Simulated assay, not measured.
Amino acid sequence: MTPLDLSAPGRPRVAILTDETGWHTTRLRRALARRGYEGRCADLEDCRFDTSRAGPGIVIPGFGRTLPVAAIVRGIAGGSLEQVTKRLGILHALRELGVPVYNDARAIERSVDKSMTSFLLHRADIASPPSWALESEAEARRLVMAETAAGRCLVLKPLFGSQGKGLQRVGCVDGRPVPLPDLADYGRLAYLQRFVPQPEGPGAPGFDWRVLVVGGRAVAAMRRVSAHWVRNVAQGARCQAAQVTPTLATLAEGAATALGMDYAGVDLVPDASAPHGAQVLEVNGVAAWRGLQSVTGFDIAQAMVDDLLGRRLGVALSPADALERAG
Protein backbone atom coordinates (compact mmCIF):
# COMPACT_ATOMS: atom_id res chain seq x y z
CA MET A 1 0.00 0.00 0.00
CA THR A 2 1.35 3.44 -0.96
CA PRO A 3 1.81 5.64 2.14
CA LEU A 4 -0.53 8.62 2.36
CA ASP A 5 1.05 12.04 1.82
CA LEU A 6 -0.20 13.89 4.90
CA SER A 7 1.11 17.27 3.65
CA ALA A 8 0.26 17.26 -0.05
CA PRO A 9 0.21 20.82 -1.47
CA GLY A 10 -3.13 22.28 -2.43
CA ARG A 11 -5.22 20.22 -0.02
CA PRO A 12 -7.78 22.11 2.10
CA ARG A 13 -6.32 22.45 5.59
CA VAL A 14 -7.94 21.46 8.87
CA ALA A 15 -6.43 22.62 12.16
CA ILE A 16 -5.91 19.91 14.78
CA LEU A 17 -5.70 21.92 17.99
CA THR A 18 -3.66 19.98 20.51
CA ASP A 19 -1.13 20.44 23.29
CA GLU A 20 0.69 17.24 22.30
CA THR A 21 1.21 15.35 19.07
CA GLY A 22 1.35 11.59 18.83
CA TRP A 23 -0.94 8.62 18.25
CA HIS A 24 -4.23 10.55 18.17
CA THR A 25 -3.04 13.33 15.90
CA THR A 26 -1.43 10.84 13.51
CA ARG A 27 -4.72 8.95 13.23
CA LEU A 28 -6.63 12.15 12.57
CA ARG A 29 -4.15 13.36 9.94
CA ARG A 30 -4.33 10.03 8.12
CA ALA A 31 -8.13 10.06 8.22
CA LEU A 32 -8.17 13.60 6.80
CA ALA A 33 -5.66 12.68 4.08
CA ARG A 34 -7.89 9.81 2.96
CA ARG A 35 -10.60 12.38 2.31
CA GLY A 36 -8.27 14.79 0.50
CA TYR A 37 -7.60 17.19 3.39
CA GLU A 38 -4.42 18.14 5.23
CA GLY A 39 -4.41 18.15 9.00
CA ARG A 40 -2.05 20.66 10.59
CA CYS A 41 -1.38 20.56 14.33
CA ALA A 42 -1.30 23.75 16.37
CA ASP A 43 -1.23 24.40 20.10
CA LEU A 44 -3.85 26.83 21.41
CA GLU A 45 -1.10 28.19 23.67
CA ASP A 46 0.67 29.42 20.52
CA CYS A 47 -2.45 30.83 18.86
CA ARG A 48 -3.06 34.53 19.38
CA PHE A 49 -5.40 37.40 18.82
CA ASP A 50 -3.95 40.06 16.51
CA THR A 51 -6.07 42.96 15.29
CA SER A 52 -3.13 45.10 14.17
CA ARG A 53 -3.61 44.32 10.48
CA ALA A 54 -6.37 43.49 8.08
CA GLY A 55 -7.42 39.88 8.41
CA PRO A 56 -9.44 37.62 10.64
CA GLY A 57 -8.02 39.00 13.92
CA ILE A 58 -6.56 35.71 15.08
CA VAL A 59 -3.39 33.85 14.10
CA ILE A 60 -3.04 30.08 14.12
CA PRO A 61 0.55 28.84 13.63
CA GLY A 62 0.94 27.14 10.27
CA PHE A 63 -1.96 29.05 8.70
CA GLY A 64 -0.46 32.54 8.37
CA ARG A 65 -3.19 35.17 8.00
CA THR A 66 -5.64 32.60 6.64
CA LEU A 67 -8.11 30.36 8.40
CA PRO A 68 -8.52 26.58 8.35
CA VAL A 69 -11.65 25.18 6.73
CA ALA A 70 -12.41 23.50 10.07
CA ALA A 71 -10.79 22.73 13.42
CA ILE A 72 -10.71 19.57 15.53
CA VAL A 73 -10.01 20.10 19.23
CA ARG A 74 -7.77 17.28 20.43
CA GLY A 75 -6.31 18.82 23.58
CA ILE A 76 -6.20 22.03 25.63
CA ALA A 77 -3.33 22.46 28.07
CA GLY A 78 -4.05 23.60 31.59
CA GLY A 79 -2.94 27.02 32.75
CA SER A 80 -4.01 30.09 34.66
CA LEU A 81 -7.58 31.31 34.43
CA GLU A 82 -6.39 34.01 32.04
CA GLN A 83 -4.53 31.55 29.81
CA VAL A 84 -7.41 29.08 29.59
CA THR A 85 -9.85 31.93 28.93
CA LYS A 86 -7.73 33.08 25.98
CA ARG A 87 -7.41 29.56 24.58
CA LEU A 88 -11.16 29.04 24.74
CA GLY A 89 -11.53 32.53 23.30
CA ILE A 90 -9.68 31.38 20.17
CA LEU A 91 -12.25 28.59 19.78
CA HIS A 92 -15.09 31.07 20.26
CA ALA A 93 -13.48 33.37 17.68
CA LEU A 94 -13.20 30.59 15.11
CA ARG A 95 -16.90 29.91 15.51
CA GLU A 96 -17.68 33.62 15.09
CA LEU A 97 -15.60 33.58 11.91
CA GLY A 98 -17.68 30.72 10.50
CA VAL A 99 -15.08 27.97 11.02
CA PRO A 100 -16.66 24.72 12.25
CA VAL A 101 -14.99 23.68 15.52
CA TYR A 102 -15.28 20.03 16.54
CA ASN A 103 -16.11 20.21 19.58
CA ASP A 104 -16.66 23.92 19.93
CA ALA A 105 -15.85 25.99 23.00
CA ARG A 106 -19.38 25.91 24.38
CA ALA A 107 -19.49 22.11 24.38
CA ILE A 108 -16.03 21.87 25.97
CA GLU A 109 -16.96 24.37 28.66
CA ARG A 110 -20.08 22.37 29.52
CA SER A 111 -18.21 19.08 29.77
CA VAL A 112 -15.05 20.25 31.54
CA ASP A 113 -17.18 21.73 34.35
CA LYS A 114 -18.56 18.66 36.13
CA SER A 115 -21.22 20.69 37.94
CA MET A 116 -22.62 21.99 34.63
CA THR A 117 -22.50 18.47 33.20
CA SER A 118 -24.53 17.20 36.16
CA PHE A 119 -27.01 20.06 35.80
CA LEU A 120 -27.55 19.49 32.06
CA LEU A 121 -27.93 15.73 32.51
CA HIS A 122 -30.47 16.34 35.28
CA ARG A 123 -32.32 18.87 33.17
CA ALA A 124 -32.49 16.38 30.27
CA ASP A 125 -33.77 13.66 32.64
CA ILE A 126 -30.79 11.40 31.93
CA ALA A 127 -29.96 8.96 34.72
CA SER A 128 -26.95 10.28 36.62
CA PRO A 129 -25.96 10.04 40.31
CA PRO A 130 -27.14 12.92 42.52
CA SER A 131 -24.43 15.58 42.63
CA TRP A 132 -23.66 18.75 44.53
CA ALA A 133 -21.28 21.68 43.92
CA LEU A 134 -20.89 24.17 46.74
CA GLU A 135 -18.35 26.65 48.02
CA SER A 136 -19.36 26.63 51.69
CA GLU A 137 -17.14 24.12 53.43
CA ALA A 138 -19.53 24.08 56.40
CA GLU A 139 -22.47 23.17 54.16
CA ALA A 140 -20.38 20.54 52.42
CA ARG A 141 -19.48 18.95 55.75
CA ARG A 142 -23.13 18.91 56.82
CA LEU A 143 -24.02 17.22 53.54
CA VAL A 144 -21.34 14.56 54.03
CA MET A 145 -22.54 13.95 57.59
CA ALA A 146 -26.14 13.52 56.42
CA GLU A 147 -25.10 11.09 53.66
CA THR A 148 -22.95 9.20 56.19
CA ALA A 149 -25.89 8.88 58.57
CA ALA A 150 -27.94 7.45 55.70
CA GLY A 151 -25.20 4.88 55.01
CA ARG A 152 -24.22 6.43 51.69
CA CYS A 153 -20.84 7.15 50.14
CA LEU A 154 -19.88 10.19 48.08
CA VAL A 155 -17.04 10.82 45.63
CA LEU A 156 -15.20 14.12 45.95
CA LYS A 157 -13.86 15.15 42.54
CA PRO A 158 -11.84 18.12 41.24
CA LEU A 159 -14.31 20.24 39.30
CA PHE A 160 -11.99 20.36 36.28
CA GLY A 161 -10.20 17.04 36.78
CA SER A 162 -9.68 14.20 34.32
CA GLN A 163 -8.23 10.68 34.01
CA GLY A 164 -9.41 9.72 37.50
CA LYS A 165 -6.94 12.02 39.25
CA GLY A 166 -7.74 13.48 42.67
CA LEU A 167 -10.83 11.35 43.39
CA GLN A 168 -11.61 10.55 47.03
CA ARG A 169 -14.46 8.71 48.69
CA VAL A 170 -16.06 10.35 51.71
CA GLY A 171 -19.12 9.63 53.82
CA CYS A 172 -19.83 5.99 54.66
CA VAL A 173 -16.89 4.17 53.07
CA ASP A 174 -16.71 0.41 53.61
CA GLY A 175 -18.88 0.80 56.71
CA ARG A 176 -16.81 3.52 58.38
CA PRO A 177 -17.23 7.31 58.35
CA VAL A 178 -14.72 9.28 56.29
CA PRO A 179 -14.95 13.07 56.71
CA LEU A 180 -14.54 15.68 54.01
CA PRO A 181 -10.84 16.63 53.67
CA ASP A 182 -9.57 20.18 53.54
CA LEU A 183 -10.72 21.69 50.24
CA ALA A 184 -7.51 23.62 49.55
CA ASP A 185 -6.52 21.10 46.87
CA TYR A 186 -9.98 21.38 45.28
CA GLY A 187 -10.04 25.11 44.69
CA ARG A 188 -12.07 25.63 47.88
CA LEU A 189 -15.05 24.05 46.16
CA ALA A 190 -16.70 20.69 46.84
CA TYR A 191 -18.06 18.81 43.85
CA LEU A 192 -19.61 15.66 45.29
CA GLN A 193 -21.29 12.83 43.42
CA ARG A 194 -23.11 9.97 45.11
CA PHE A 195 -21.09 6.77 44.76
CA VAL A 196 -22.66 3.86 42.87
CA PRO A 197 -21.34 0.71 44.61
CA GLN A 198 -19.53 -1.86 42.47
CA PRO A 199 -17.79 -5.17 43.25
CA GLU A 200 -14.17 -4.74 44.29
CA GLY A 201 -11.17 -6.92 44.96
CA PRO A 202 -8.98 -9.33 42.94
CA GLY A 203 -11.66 -12.03 42.82
CA ALA A 204 -14.48 -9.79 41.67
CA PRO A 205 -13.27 -6.83 39.62
CA GLY A 206 -15.90 -4.29 38.78
CA PHE A 207 -16.33 -2.39 35.55
CA ASP A 208 -17.86 0.61 33.91
CA TRP A 209 -18.43 1.51 30.27
CA ARG A 210 -16.89 4.08 27.97
CA VAL A 211 -19.15 4.75 24.98
CA LEU A 212 -18.00 6.95 22.12
CA VAL A 213 -20.65 9.09 20.47
CA VAL A 214 -19.90 10.64 17.07
CA GLY A 215 -22.40 12.90 15.34
CA GLY A 216 -25.16 11.94 17.75
CA ARG A 217 -24.66 8.18 17.30
CA ALA A 218 -23.01 5.73 19.70
CA VAL A 219 -20.40 4.04 17.49
CA ALA A 220 -18.20 2.00 19.84
CA ALA A 221 -18.00 0.87 23.45
CA MET A 222 -15.72 -0.88 25.88
CA ARG A 223 -15.75 -2.09 29.44
CA ARG A 224 -13.09 -0.71 31.75
CA VAL A 225 -12.33 -3.45 34.26
CA SER A 226 -10.46 -2.98 37.53
CA ALA A 227 -10.43 -4.23 41.11
CA HIS A 228 -10.16 -0.57 42.15
CA TRP A 229 -13.22 1.66 42.24
CA VAL A 230 -11.48 4.23 39.99
CA ARG A 231 -11.68 2.61 36.56
CA ASN A 232 -9.97 5.04 34.22
CA VAL A 233 -7.54 3.49 31.74
CA ALA A 234 -4.97 6.05 32.90
CA GLN A 235 -5.29 4.52 36.39
CA GLY A 236 -4.62 0.98 35.19
CA ALA A 237 -8.05 -0.34 34.17
CA ARG A 238 -8.14 -3.05 31.48
CA CYS A 239 -10.04 -2.47 28.25
CA GLN A 240 -12.51 -5.11 27.08
CA ALA A 241 -14.64 -5.00 23.94
CA ALA A 242 -18.31 -4.31 24.61
CA GLN A 243 -21.43 -4.24 22.50
CA VAL A 244 -23.23 -0.96 22.00
CA THR A 245 -26.55 -2.10 23.42
CA PRO A 246 -29.75 -0.08 22.89
CA THR A 247 -29.63 0.95 26.55
CA LEU A 248 -26.04 2.19 26.41
CA ALA A 249 -26.72 3.96 23.10
CA THR A 250 -29.82 5.72 24.47
CA LEU A 251 -28.04 7.01 27.57
CA ALA A 252 -24.78 7.98 25.82
CA GLU A 253 -26.47 9.67 22.87
CA GLY A 254 -28.81 11.55 25.19
CA ALA A 255 -25.86 12.76 27.28
CA ALA A 256 -23.94 13.99 24.22
CA THR A 257 -27.05 15.77 22.93
CA ALA A 258 -27.72 17.39 26.31
CA LEU A 259 -24.23 18.96 26.22
CA GLY A 260 -24.37 19.87 22.52
CA MET A 261 -21.33 17.79 21.55
CA ASP A 262 -20.08 16.72 18.11
CA TYR A 263 -18.27 13.80 19.69
CA ALA A 264 -18.10 12.63 23.28
CA GLY A 265 -16.67 9.91 25.47
CA VAL A 266 -19.49 9.02 27.85
CA ASP A 267 -18.69 7.10 31.05
CA LEU A 268 -21.49 4.96 32.46
CA VAL A 269 -21.71 2.71 35.50
CA PRO A 270 -24.02 -0.30 35.91
CA ASP A 271 -26.80 0.26 38.43
CA ALA A 272 -29.59 -2.30 38.77
CA SER A 273 -31.76 0.27 40.56
CA ALA A 274 -31.67 2.75 37.65
CA PRO A 275 -34.48 2.70 35.05
CA HIS A 276 -32.12 1.59 32.26
CA GLY A 277 -29.78 -0.43 34.48
CA ALA A 278 -26.99 2.17 34.22
CA GLN A 279 -26.18 5.77 35.05
CA VAL A 280 -24.03 8.38 33.31
CA LEU A 281 -21.04 9.39 35.45
CA GLU A 282 -19.20 11.85 33.19
CA VAL A 283 -19.14 13.22 29.64
CA ASN A 284 -15.74 13.96 28.09
CA GLY A 285 -15.54 16.67 25.45
CA VAL A 286 -11.91 16.07 24.49
CA ALA A 287 -12.05 12.30 24.77
CA ALA A 288 -9.06 10.08 24.10
CA TRP A 289 -9.85 6.84 22.29
CA ARG A 290 -6.62 4.86 22.09
CA GLY A 291 -7.81 2.31 24.65
CA LEU A 292 -11.16 1.93 22.92
CA GLN A 293 -9.52 1.62 19.50
CA SER A 294 -7.42 -1.28 20.84
CA VAL A 295 -10.55 -3.40 21.35
CA THR A 296 -12.60 -2.47 18.28
CA GLY A 297 -12.05 -2.75 14.54
CA PHE A 298 -14.15 0.37 13.98
CA ASP A 299 -11.97 3.26 12.74
CA ILE A 300 -12.80 5.98 15.26
CA ALA A 301 -10.66 8.76 13.76
CA GLN A 302 -12.15 8.14 10.32
CA ALA A 303 -15.67 8.26 11.74
CA MET A 304 -14.92 11.62 13.38
CA VAL A 305 -13.42 13.06 10.21
CA ASP A 306 -16.28 11.77 8.05
CA ASP A 307 -18.80 13.27 10.47
CA LEU A 308 -16.98 16.62 10.53
CA LEU A 309 -16.80 16.82 6.75
CA GLY A 310 -20.29 15.51 6.10
CA ARG A 311 -22.37 17.11 8.85
CA ARG A 312 -20.45 20.32 9.49
CA LEU A 313 -18.98 21.05 6.03
CA GLY A 314 -21.56 19.35 3.81
CA VAL A 315 -18.96 17.22 2.00
CA ALA A 316 -20.52 13.92 0.98
CA LEU A 317 -18.60 10.67 0.83
CA SER A 318 -17.61 9.61 -2.65
CA PRO A 319 -19.14 6.30 -3.83
CA ALA A 320 -15.75 4.62 -3.35
CA ASP A 321 -15.40 6.00 0.18
CA ALA A 322 -18.97 5.03 1.04
CA LEU A 323 -18.33 1.48 -0.21
CA GLU A 324 -15.10 1.26 1.81
CA ARG A 325 -16.84 2.43 5.03
CA ALA A 326 -19.68 -0.02 4.49
CA GLY A 327 -17.21 -2.86 3.98
Rank of each mutant, 00 (worst) to 15 (best):
R231C: 01
V283K: 06
A249Y: 03
V73C: 03
A138W: 11
P9Q: 08
R176M: 10
R65H: 09
I72W: 02
T247G: 14
V170W: 11
V230R: 12
L44G: 01
E20V: 09
E137M: 00
I58G: 00
R312F: 03
L120E: 09
W289V: 06
I16H: 02
P130Q: 04
R30V: 01
V280N: 05
S115R: 14
R87Y: 00
R13I: 07
A303L: 04
R106Y: 13
P129T: 08
A70E: 02
P202C: 11
A322R: 15
S7Y: 13
D271V: 08
M145V: 14
S273H: 14
G187D: 05
R53C: 07
T117C: 14
R11N: 04
R65I: 03
T257D: 14
R35F: 04
L281P: 01
Q243K: 13
A77S: 13
T2V: 13
D125S: 14
A146C: 04
L292I: 11
G285M: 08
A107N: 06
G161F: 11
I58F: 03
A105E: 03
Q279S: 13
G285W: 10
D46E: 14
L4D: 03
F298W: 11
V99C: 04
K165M: 14
V69K: 11
T18N: 02
W132F: 14
A221R: 01
A241E: 10
T250D: 08
V99A: 06
G260M: 13
S294Y: 10
L323A: 15
A301F: 02
G78K: 08
R312L: 07
E139A: 15
P56D: 01
L159V: 14
C41Q: 05
D182F: 00
G171T: 12
D46G: 06
S80F: 03
H122W: 13
A42L: 03
V266Q: 09
E147T: 11
A256K: 05
G55V: 09
A150K: 14
L167Y: 12
A258G: 07
L212G: 00
R65G: 03
E139I: 07
R53Q: 12
S7T: 13
R40P: 00
M304W: 00
L156Y: 07
L67S: 02
A227G: 10
G265Q: 07
G55K: 12
P181V: 12
L189T: 13
R29P: 00
L317G: 01
G10F: 04
G164Y: 12
P12H: 10
I90M: 14
V173I: 12
V219W: 02
D5F: 12
F119M: 11
H122F: 08
A320H: 12
V269R: 10
R311K: 12
